[in-house]
């Protein structure tokens, strides 16, 4: 094994296999994929297609009347200012939450991958938000964000800053939701990064140290590239989750004030489950799907198949 530099192996890039060679792999691939294909096909693909079909109907989910409306639901969606507002709110949330949680998760993971005292306890504490049920978390954050009683504004007041009325101020409510979203995501990112850091061969660091690399250089040129597949994974999944965020908004702001936190997930919930417009909600779901899918594809393109870090 020659390991002159960090390298991530991406099968299929180096040598282009012939069709015959790939075909030969089919039986064994089938073996590995059979449970996945059967289960996802039955319990995910079929329901997803059914809901696509529903998006062309007007249906409340129970009525025997289910008129076909063609593309009306989509047309209505694109001409609704509510939808464009939700889209904007969601994109801001997704971008801010993903980037912040990624950076913090990586910092925490790198710090906790060192040989420091209390490492195990720290890890458990940083993971607690992932475990803490959203209802409890939402309620306590509501207290923390309380304009007069809340810890956050009291702390700010101590530093001479008058804090905003977070959850009732249309220009701050989304910031508050992002903060809680990041809070809940950091531990999750930390775990994935920690698992990946275990895979970094020590020899790389030893080599880098022999070359006289500073800690920052070791991080920048050894750790960061090796974490690239994980970063890619976490970015893709964080965006997928963030585009669908619902429960935090449901517990903390119900989309308000003045629709400033009316993310698409909540918008969809309102139409699907409060207004009983299943056809329209399915159309929302598919527009969301298309959007996330395109974003994901772009990410794959940019990172060449999700195996970033090839030099």
């Amino acid at each position: 094994m020659t390991l002159s530099r960090p390298q991530v192996h991406n099968e299929g890039r180096a040598k282009r296999p012939t069709f015959m060679r790939t075909f030969k792999n089919l039986p064994i691939a089938l073996f590995f994929l059979l449970p996945t294909v059967v289960i996802l096909g039955t319990f995910n693909f079929y329901p997803a297609l059914y809901s696509l079909y529903l998006s062309f109907f007007e249906w409340n989910g129970v009525s025997p009347k289910r008129p076909f409306v063609g593309l009306d639901n989509y047309q209505r969606l694109f001409s609704s200012s509510e939808f464009w507002n939700s889209l904007q709110v969601t994109v801001i949330y997704a971008a801010a939450m993903t980037v912040a949680a990624l950076a913090l998760g990586m910092i925490v993971a790198v710090l906790l991958n060192q040989d420091i005292r209390g490492r195990a306890l720290y890890r458990a504490l940083y993971f607690l938000p992932v475990i803490t049920p959203t209802v409890a978390a939402g309620v306590v954050w509501k207290y923390l964000f309380d304009p007069s009683q809340g810890v956050i504004n009291r702390f700010l007041a101590g530093s001479g800053i008058t804090g905003p009325s977070w959850l009732t101020d249309p220009s701050w409510a989304l910031v508050a939701i992002v903060i809680v979203g990041v809070w809940k995501r950091v531990g999750f990112n930390m775990v994935v990064y920690l698992a990946a850091l275990q895979g970094v061969p020590r020899i790389y660091y030893e080599a880098a140290q022999l070359d006289g690399a500073s800690p920052w250089q070791r991080f920048r040129f050894v750790t960061l590239p090796l974490l690239a597949p994980s970063t890619f994974f976490l970015t893709v999944t964080a965006l997928i989750d963030a585009f669908q965020v619902f429960d935090l908004v449901y517990v903390m702001t119900q989309g308000g004030p003045l629709k400033s936190t009316d993310v698409i997930g909540y918008y969809l919930y309102r139409y699907g489950f409060r207004y009983y417009e299943l056809g329209f909600a399915s159309a929302i779901a598919y527009v969301m799907f298309a959007l996330i899918f395109v974003v994901t594809l772009i990410q794959f393109r940019l990172s060449r198949g999700g195996a970033q870090g090839e030099n």
């Binding site: 296999p17 995910n44 997803a48 893709v236 669908q244």
Partner: peptide, 27 residues
């Protein structure tokens, strides 16, 4: 493994994460 349709299948599988679960509840 390289096999025919690998990337398509992979994206289909990823795609299942992108459909909000509640709208698939009834089917």
């Amino acid at each position: 493994l390289r096999f025919p349709g690998r990337d398509v299948l992979f994206f289909l599988i990823l795609g299942t994460m992108m459909i909000p679960f509640p709208v698939t509840l009834i089917p």
